[in-house]
Design a protein around this nucleic acid. Structure first.
Length: 300
DNA sequence: AGTGGCTCCTGGCGGC
DNA sequence: TGCCGCCAGGAGCCAC
C-alpha cells in the first residue's frame, strides 16, 4: 500500500521525466476515479505544461502552468486557462505507469503527454482518486480533509506529538493511522514505528510518558526515512512509474510476520485487529504495560 | 469532540 | 477439481 515513502518515491521518479511535458488530454475510463466529470477534468487540466511535483501526506500533487495560446489544436478552441493542480491519491493499489499503448488492464484514467508519452493510472481495487484544483483552492481542499502536519516538516515536533497524544484513550495504532494528527503514516509504517519505539499498539495515546513520546517521534521519522531510503515497500502491488520495486519489505520487523520470530528477541510476532486493521507486534519488545487501552471486543 | 464501525472494491486464498 | 465466501485496507461517512 502506498504510504508516505512510496508516494515520495513515485514523486521523485516522476520528477525525472514529467516536468516540461504538456498534458494534451485526459481520458477517464472509470468515472468513479473522480468526483469531477471527464469534461471538467479536461477543462481544468488539459493544455497545460507540467511545472512540478509535490507530495502532501499520501497525496501526489502535479503542478500545471497556465496554458499557452494554442493554434494547432484542431479538436477545439483550447480554452484559455490558468494554472492548475492535479491531486492524485493512490490509496491501496494505484499505480502511475508510462505505457505507449493500452495496458494489460484498462487504466482508470490516462494522460496524453507531449511529446508522445502516455501516463496510465492503473488501480485494481479502484480506491484511488483524482482531483483537478484551482491552485487557490488547494489549501481549502486539504483543510476540509483535516490534514495533519508532514512528519518531516517543522510542525511535527516532540512537543506537537505530546500535545496531540495528551488525554487520548484511543490505541496508539489508531492514533498513528489518523491523517488529521500526522499525515502519511499507514498500516505498515505504523506497525514498524511502534516496534522501533518499543510501544504496544494497544497502549492508549495519553498513557505515554515524555520519554516514550520522544521515542515514538524518533521512531516515526527513522522508519519513514528508512522506507524512502529503500525505495518503498513492494507489498501488494507497489511499483514505481519505471516499474521498479522497493526493498523495504525485506527490512520489515513485524508487519505481516505473524508467528515468525522477532528479528531482535526471537519471540513469535503476534497479530491483533485494531480499528479494523491487522496489527503486528512483538509481545516482548513491545510489552503491555501501564495505560493499556481496552482490548478488542469479544467476538460475537 | 472523540471514538469506533461500516463502506467501497477486487484478487487471492482457505475450506469444504 | 471447483466453487463459495471471506479477507485485506485508506479514508469518508455516520452513529453514539
Amino acid at each position: 500500500m502506498p504510504e508516505l515513502p512510496e508516494v515520495e518515491i513515485v514523486r521523485r521518479r516522476l520528477l525525472t521525466c514529467l516536468p516540461g511535458l504538456v498534458l494534451r488530454d485526459v481520458t477517464v475510463n472509470d468515472p468513479k476515479v473522480s468526483e469531477q466529470s471527464e469534461a471538467e477534468l479536461r477543462l481544468l487540466l488539459a493544455g497545460r505544461r507540467v511545472a512540478g511535483l509535490r507530495r502532501r501526506g499520501k497525496y501526489l500533487l502535479v503542478d500545471l502552468a497556465a496554458s499557452e495560446p494554442c493554434t494547432t489544436d484542431a479538436g477545439g478552441p483550447g480554452e484559455p486557462g490558468g494554472p492548475a493542480v492535479a491531486v492524485i491519491h493512490l490509496r491501496m493499489t494505484g499505480q502511475l505507469v508510462f505505457l505507449p499503448g493500452p495496458g494489460e488492464r484498462p487504466a482508470r484514467f490516462i494522460w496524453d503527454l507531449e511529446p508522445g508519452t502516455r501516463l496510465h493510472f492503473q488501480d485494481v481495487r479502484r480506491f484511488g482518486r483524482l482531483w483537478a484544483l484551482d491552485p487557490t483552492s488547494e489549501e481549502a481542499f486539504f483543510t476540509a480533509r483535516g490534514m495533519g502536519p508532514e512528519p518531516f516538516g517543522p510542525e511535527f515536533t516532540v512537543e506537537y506529538l505530546r500535545a496531540e497524544l495528551h488525554g487520548r484513550r484511543a490505541p496508539l495504532k489508531s492514533f498513528l493511522l489518523d491523517q488529521r494528527r500526522l499525515a502519511g503514516v499507514g498500516n505498515i509504517y505504523a506497525d514498524e514505528s511502534l516496534f522501533r519505539a518499543g510501544l504496544h499498539p494497544l497502549r492508549a495515546g495519553g498513557s505515554l510518558g515524555p520519554r516514550e513520546a520522544r521515542r515514538l517521534h524518533t521512531a516515526l521519522l527513522e522508519t519513514l526515512q528508512a522506507g524512502i531510503d529503500h525505495e518503498g515497500s513492494s507489498i501488494e502491488s507497489f511499483i514505481d512509474p519505471a516499474g521498479q520495486r522497493g526493498s523495504f519489505q525485506d527490512m520489515l520487523r513485524v508487519y505481516q510476520r505473524t508467528g515468525r520470530p522477532c528479528r531482535v528477541c526471537g519471540t513469535a510476532v503476534e497479530r491483533v485487529v485494531v480499528g479494523g486493521r491487522g496489527t503486528h507486534y512483538c509481545p516482548r519488545c513491545q510489552p503491555r504495560r501501564r495505560g493499556m487501552a481496552p482490548g478488542p471486543p469479544p467476538r460475537r
